[in-house]
């Protein structure tokens, strides 16, 4: 599993993450735990996925999950950039995030 996560504090108790590498089934379990915990500790998350060069449907599912979880907790979750690999998946499933 090759996934690099960079976490940065942003204004208004927001966190900004930059992810690079794989968003696949191999990283999904751990990544979910990490991001869910972080989401609970802040007011909102922005996430840059421009450097995700490998992804599968588990990555897509994880983003849907985080979006729903954030809405449920009354927090904000926003993707700022998406790699073409991820974009392809979202395009196929016709989901907009």
């Amino acid at each position: 599993m090759k996934l690099k996560i960079v976490r940065k504090k942003a204004e208004n108790n927001f966190l900004h993450f930059t992810l690079a590498g794989e968003m696949t089934v191999y990283s999904a379990g751990k990544l979910k735990d990490v991001l869910l915990n972080e989401l609970k500790s802040c007011s909102g998350i922005t996430i840059d996925l421009a450097e995700i060069d490998e992804a599968d449907t588990s990555g897509f599912q994880l983003l849907l999950f985080l979006k729903r979880e954030a809405a449920n907790l009354g927090k904000s979750f926003r993707i700022t950039e998406m790699s073409s690999r991820l974009r392809n998946i979202f395009n196929l499933y016709k989901e907009i995030v």
């Binding site: 599912q61 196929l92 016709k94 989901e95």
Partner: peptide
């Protein structure tokens, strides 16, 4: 042609219960 497609994830658990490597879709 896939004219329309909707992801269904009503059965995906919330919070800790959701396992990232399982499929709920």
């Amino acid at each position: 042609e896939i004219v329309n497609i909707r992801s269904i994830y009503e059965n995906m658990p919330y919070g800790e219960e959701m396992k990232g490597d399982l499929c709920y879709l």
